[in-house]
Design a protein around this nucleic acid. Structure first.
Length: 958
RNA sequence: GGGCGAGUGGCGGAAUAGGUAUACGCGCACGACUCAAAAUCGUGUUCCGAUAAGGAUUGAGGGUUCGAUUCCCUCCUCGCCCACCA
């Protein structure tokens, strides 16, 4: 009997498959197509570890399953070769990027090969190959032609380590996404793609994509659409207007100051002579501060007064203008109207600089009951300054809307002063009569509440009043007998009180009086002149209309997303195909002169002066203008690597095309991608850019769809056994090569990658678990080997049929849901069952050959090598991977006898065996005779019977 | 601070149009084989209880139901992403 040796069989079959080309996507229309794609890797210096391998294992299982279920499958692979990772690796190792890429792709390909993935290697692409980037440049020209590529001088993120600018998306918490160094701002003339033109479509089309909610919401947040208003404030004594963006124009009556960013063009201009020096100092300091520092949200607010005033367009109020760095120059207009009462940041600033806080939106609390009586009411909080406790009334346990722990509260008599009324209520209910008025709550609270005494619902306008106790003298309370004893008085610490209080309105009043703060959210307008009484939503519309009538404001939609900066001052990228001419400006390179090839240079090291190394190559730079023929210079910046990956999935459909990026017929057949598999790290970069390019191509008529990836699947990360992220620097990476060397084999690794847990959930790699996977394959191996050594037999086995049909059904259904871990569990269970039958009856049953063949087919998507080897040992000549997925028949799946659980009052008390499909009456009759149940049923009446066929009988007895 | 997701044995996890919780694997224990070990095969393994009867158990607490891991409410913990975005 042969031993299971992955080292022997795996390379053997890999060679056979490659030579016979069985994974080549056919140019046929006879089967439905499936395009299964995994993110193409960038071949960096570090080899692939088992975390990367999971991505490809998932894709391969899907691809293989689809092939066996009658699909024409495209499953390609290529290399995202341009870009910083490859270039930095090359610099570090003092080799040319071409050489580095050649070495690394070779290594990566060997790693993928040894895992037995079923790629169509005939379509392999490499984004740094001129045959490929020629078309990347072609797309640049298309974007340029459509006005979607433009050049602009602006302050840009600059990484001093990588010596290049970076796109917004490539900044992570003020640091470069590649090297982790702090970035700075630098003024440079740069190329941009106008992705903001597509913001609305990128947002709207997300709804119909079969992507995870988390990725969709990341993209939504990134696009950051918000509806609001632009409002023009006149500046006293100046002609300039101060334009602000706000999402809450309804709070305009509550504006108490304005804030502009230090970078705002008016910042220094509007400063009064008296304040100019301070302003200049502040602006300078802000510019000098690092972005990491400025982006810290937990630091204290800073700012200076400019000495200038703006005028509130709806009430003419004079508002001081401040400069502060908490206002960002890059968002909205770089200036805000500050409403400290209703915005936390403004509030913080107002407290720090002692600016007024004006409440204009009253919050609404409680639930509407429908039968409210409107009433003016007060809530009195009495504080004992000696103990810092507040007086509360305990009405007993809170039930529905009754009882609970509350403050003194009550209605006002007609015409009664709020403070007097509050005092009266406190004395009436508690007897404390030496009260000192401290303050009123700065706003009213509308609340629907139930009176504890008078059974009525009130729609109350509540005013909170704070008293302090002069002494603890108490007079007799004037409660009538009905009210007495309904509550007890309690003194409670102020911190505790906020937790204990049982009414949302009371709680807000407490917070407001003891620690006033920001009122966020919607509500009802107050202290706002003619807008009083409107809901904040209605007020928003009204104020917008008023402003528009006066041409002082308008509704606008604002986005967080910026245009995509694609210039890189680096060598290793596709040159931007533009020629700069003194006469004609930036002229696109004519299509027939593409590709603009990367020249060979002596040093690829970035110069650090903001220019790409290409600028030092005169032969490359100096050229003639395609328009006027005069002397001209080439653009020396290269394109962001993400440009290359924005269309590679299209190229796979027609990767060898010399005359066009692709042939439309082939795109029409293969695209869009049916299953796109990769990690979540690309959520706002690659996945957004690729969607953008796809929409541009659709608009140009190059393709007929506007979303490239119908279904996106984000695999869970494989963590190191220590629970940390695998990384070279931590030294905790596990590479498949070593495991294969140890003899586990690619098949065991593949099983482990999927069996470790749901494919989209993170999991820690386990060496012991891999041993289990190997044992399972070895058991399978042994089973087939032993069978092959027997004569077989001709007995029929219903049991064998049942096991196999059940397994086929389970695995088939789980595969469609990508539930790989449970598929594999079912296969393990199946093998265990086959062992049991073998031990009982040997290999006498006639179904053994068929059973084992089915088992191997079900295994084939996961463990292609062992499946192929044993398949052929069972006497098959054609590859198992071209065979048909087995079918199941429900009639063998169900068993004739089934166990039914019998519950008595919800507890399982017995299990009885009945024939499949038995009727309730039969089961009940059997249950009544069951010995185990007799003690429970004796002398009891069965009140109710619930029967779930073939599963459960539930008896309710009295 | 905001958004998304998740809490089940010693561990990874299974079971959610409500229906026998802990499948499968790891680990552990015992047995067979062996001079012995490894490998292999077999048995057991949620907890308490005595190998019994019985009871408890899906982060905590409450609710709906004959019946809740699954649905609803309150809270706690962890992970990921975003974050002074007006």
């Amino acid at each position: 009997m042969k031993r299971y040796s992955p080292k022997d069989i795996e390379p053997k079959w890999q060679k056979v498959w490659e030579e016979s080309g069985i994974y080549k996507a056919a140019a046929t229309n006879d089967r439905p197509k499936k395009y299964i794609l995994e993110y193409f890797p960038y071949p960096s210096g570090a080899a692939m570890h088992v975390g990367h391998v999971r991505n490809y294992t998932i894709g391969d299982a899907i691809a293989r399953f689809n092939r066996m279920t009658g699909h024409n499958v495209l499953h390609p692979m290529g290399w995202d070769a341009f870009g910083l990772p490859a270039e930095n690796y090359a610099i570090k190792n003092k080799v040319s990027p071409e050489v580095a890429i050649a070495e690394n792709t070779k290594r990566f390909k060997q790693q993928l090969m040894q895992m037995g993935f079923s790629y169509d290697w005939s379509r392999e692409i490499n984004s740094s190959n001129p045959d490929y980037y020629r078309w990347t440049q072609w797309f640049f020209l298309l974007l340029h032609k459509k006005g979607l590529a433009y050049q602009q001088e602006s302050l840009q993120w600059w990484c001093p380590f990588d010596k290049t600018v970076l796109a917004n998306e490539q900044i992570e918490a003020g640091r470069c996404w590649r090297c982790g160094n702090e970035v700075e701002k630098k003024a440079l003339k740069q190329w941009f793609f106008k992705i903001t033109d597509y913001a609305d479509r990128l947002l709207a089309d997300l709804d119909n994509l079969n992507w995870s909610e988390s990725i969709k919401s990341m993209q939504r947040n990134w696009i950051g659409k918000s509806r609001g208003a632009e409002i023009n404030f006149t500046i006293e004594g100046r002609r300039n207007k101060l334009k602000v963006f706000t999402t809450r124009p309804d709070t305009l009556p509550g504006v108490t100051f304005m804030v502009i960013a230090p970078e705002h063009p008016l910042a220094e201009k509007i400063a009064s002579d008296q304040h100019r020096h301070q302003v200049q100092t502040y602006v300078k300091a802000a510019q000098a501060a690092t972005d990491i520092f400025r982006e810290k949200t937990d630091r204290e607010k800073t700012g200076v007064f400019t000495g200038a005033f703006a005028v509130n367009p709806i009430n003419g109020n004079k508002i001081p203008i401040w400069i502060a760095d908490y206002v960002l120059s890059g968002y909205g207009t770089g200036a805000i109207m500050a409403v400290p009462a209703h915005d936390e940041r403004d509030y913080e600033f107002a407290i720090k600089f002692n600016l007024p806080v004006k409440y204009v939106v009253e919050p609404v609390t409680g639930e509407v009951q429908g039968d409210e009586v409107e009433k003016e009411a007060i809530v009195a909080i009495v504080r004992n300054p000696k103990t810092n406790q507040v007086l509360m009334l305990d009405w007993g346990p809170r039930q529905e809307r009754f009882g609970g722990i509350l403050f003194v509260g009550g209605g006002l008599e007609p015409g009664e002063d709020e403070v007097e009324g509050a005092k009266r209520e406190v004395i009436e209910e508690t007897g404390y009569d030496n009260l000192k008025f401290v303050k009123k709550a700065p706003y009213l609270v509308h609340s629907y509440y139930f009176s504890n005494v008078k059974n009525k619902n009130y729609y109350a306008k509540m005013r909170g009043i704070l008293f302090e106790l002069d002494d603890e003298h108490q007079t007799k309370t004037s409660l009538d007998d009905g009210e007495k004893n309904k509550f007890t008085l309690k003194w409670i610490g102020t911190d505790k009180a906020s937790e204990l209080v049982d009414d949302e309105g009371h709680k807000q009043i407490l917070n407001c009086l003891v620690s006033p703060g920001v009122v966020s959210g919607e509500g009802i307008m107050t202290d706002s002149g003619k807008y009083n009484g409107l809901s904040s939503g209605e007020c928003r519309e009204k104020i917008l209309a008023d402003l528009e009538a006066k041409h002082q404001g308008k509704e606008v939609i604002n986005y967080k997303m910026r245009d995509w900066l694609i210039s890189r001052q680096r060598y290793w990228g596709a040159p931007i195909p533009i020629i700069h001419c003194n006469n004609d400006g930036a002229v696109p390179v004519p299509e027939d002169q593409l590709p603009v090839k990367l020249p060979v240079v002596e040093s690829i090291e970035p110069s650090g002066d903001g220019r790409s190394p290409l600028a030092n190559v005169p032969d490359f730079v100096n050229t003639t203008c395609p328009k006027c023929g005069g002397p001209a210079t080439r653009e020396t910046d290269t394109m962001d690597g993400f440009a290359c990956s924005s269309w590679y999935f299209l190229r796979f459909a027609d990767s060898k095309n010399k005359h066009a990026p692709f042939d439309k017929d082939k795109i029409d057949y293969w695209l869009p991608v049916d299953d796109y598999i990769g990690g979540a790290e690309h959520a706002v970069m690659h996945l957004l850019y690729a969607r953008f390019w796809t929409k541009v191509m659709k608009d140009e008529g190059l393709i007929d769809f506007s979303e490239p990836f119908q279904t996106l699947r984000n695999q869970g990360m494989i963590l190191a056994p220590d629970g940390n992220k695998m990384s070279k620097s931590k030294g905790n990476t596990i590479e498949p090569d070593g495991l294969i060397q140890q003899g586990y084999g690619a098949d065991s690794i593949r099983i482990m990658e999927l069996f470790i847990g749901p494919w989209n959930q993170a999991a820690s790699w386990s060496v012991e678990g891999l041993g289990g996977a190997y044992r399972f394959l070895q058991r399978t191996w042994t089973l087939v080997q032993e069978y092959n050594g027997t004569e077989g037999g001709d007995e029929e086995s219903e049991e064998l049929k049942h096991i196999m049909h059940k397994t086929i059904k389970k695995v088939s259904e789980d595969m469609l849901e990508l539930s790989f871990n449970t598929s594999i569990a079912a296969l393990m269970e199946c093998v265990n069952q086959l062992y049991r039958i073998k031990a009982q009856d040997g290999y006498r049953a006639v179904e053994w050959q068929w059973s084992l063949e089915c088992l191997l087919k079900l295994l084939a998507p996961f463990t292609p090598h062992i499946a192929e080897e044993l398949w052929q040992e069972l006497g098959n000549d054609e590859s198992i991977h071209l065979s048909q997925w087995p079918a199941f028949d429900d009639k063998y799946v169900v068993k004739e006898e089934v166990n039914i659980a019998v519950q008595v009052n919800g507890k399982v008390r017995a299990e009885i065996e009945v024939v499949f499909g038995a009727h309730q009456d039969e089961v009940l009759a059997l249950a009544k005779q069951e010995d185990k149940l007799k003690p429970y049923l004796k002398g009891k009446q069965i009140e109710r019977v619930i029967y779930v066929p073939d599963k459960l009988l539930s008896l309710v007895i009295n």
